[in-house]
Design a protein around this nucleic acid. Structure first.
Lengths: 199, 199
DNA sequence: CTCGATTTTGAGAGTAGCTGTCACTTTCTG
DNA sequence: CAGAAAGTGACAGCTACTCTCAAAATCGAG
């Protein structure tokens, strides 16, 4: 999980982490209990035993509580570390099984909660899409490096955008089914893409 | 009622249309002049000489003023009317040149304003993406009909999602260049896709 | 033209997310 | 132990957005 900075546990850091998790957990609970819109920041703050101001010090917006994600950075790193002889699509598929395969049962639980919540609240869906679209540029860069081309290359960018589209479909597709198949769904979509999208 | 036989919209309708356009035009002007976030609904209402309540009767949100779009429905219809022997990608390319080719100079101007504004305001970008993602289902349905498969078919949906991804890249790509090339960019991306995304 | 029904409108009050300020407390460091 | 740094809470303010209610404009029919 986190990288221990050796002799730096620090009371402050620990307390901060605890507060942050308390806010997030209570928020998620309240959201699922009474709905996202119906839950006010004030309620969350009260449940987590902090003041509303403190809430905003930990999460810049109410959305952020749901959207804060520790998976993406790990995924990017994993992708970068895949053997260079793999094609981008192969590397991506390997990354997916790698990252999502090593998730604890608890993390899975949280992740599923997140997904359901996001899917059911348009506001959150929009925010997630925005994030996804922003990461296209980053992804394109890594793809460019892998195939030895310019990151600004039109075809490289287009490829990255297309893969994003796949992720999108897989996302909504997986929501209609038990989450266990999320990886399978994505993998299937990428395989379809790999074969040139035959219809 | 002097002329019973003409289908003129009626005073009420015309006034409504005029008010709506007044709001939209003043809003766009203020947005470009002083920025989106810095422009309040109150200012727009005042400029358009209506009350804030009236503003919200014409546009449910401040975003809607920018996002309201008369192109999409036309595009969907055009796509549907392309000769059935065309493959989905061919039909899509034909649709693009069809719809965007028949735009008046004035419409182009507004469209470009919209695009620049949307691109520069994350909030608007997110909203556009949400819309785009919702139209994937509609697009998938039409694709399914064209190739004679089930709209729920996984590959059909994946295809639709991928095309969406292309639209996304084309969108941001085109913004870095004079808008005239928007069609060209999209067309090029779709051609790349048609050839199986070679890298 | 007139009257009654419908629609459009404006005013005002209220909610909630978010920002910013300031003083107070807790934790860390030397 | 003292001072610096960081975390916290109370409060005030702005704006998007909602809701209600009554006044005004528009329309259809007699």
């Amino acid at each position: 999980m986190a990288q221990p900075s050796d002799d730096r546990p620090g009371l402050r850091e620990r307390k901060k982490a605890r507060t942050r998790r308390a806010i997030r957990d209570h928020a998620m609970r309240l959201f699922t209990e009474q709905g996202y819109a119906a839950t006010t920041v004030e309620q969350i703050a009260e449940a987590a035993e902090v003041s509303p101001s403190t809430f905003f010090r930990y999460f810049p917006t109410k959305e952020e509580v749901v959207l804060a994600d520790d998976i993406d950075p790990v995924a990017f790193e994993s992708f970068q570390n895949q053997p260079p002889e793999m094609t981008p699509l192969e590397a991506l598929r390997a990354t997916l099984t790698d990252v999502f395969g090593n998730l604890s049962e608890e993390d899975w639980e949280l992740e599923r909660h997140r997904q359901v919540l996001i899917a059911s609240v348009p506001e959150l869906r929009a925010a997630v899409l925005l994030r996804l679209s922003e990461s296209v540029a980053v992804f394109a860069e890594q793809v460019a490096k892998r195939v030895g081309r310019d990151p600004a290359d039109f075809e490289v960018r287009n490829f990255a955008g297309v893969v994003l589209g796949t992720a999108l479909t897989g996302f909504s597709e997986a929501l209609e089914q038990p989450m266990k198949t999320y990886i399978e769904t994505m993998d299937r979509a990428l395989e379809h893409l790999q074969q040139g999208l035959p219809l």
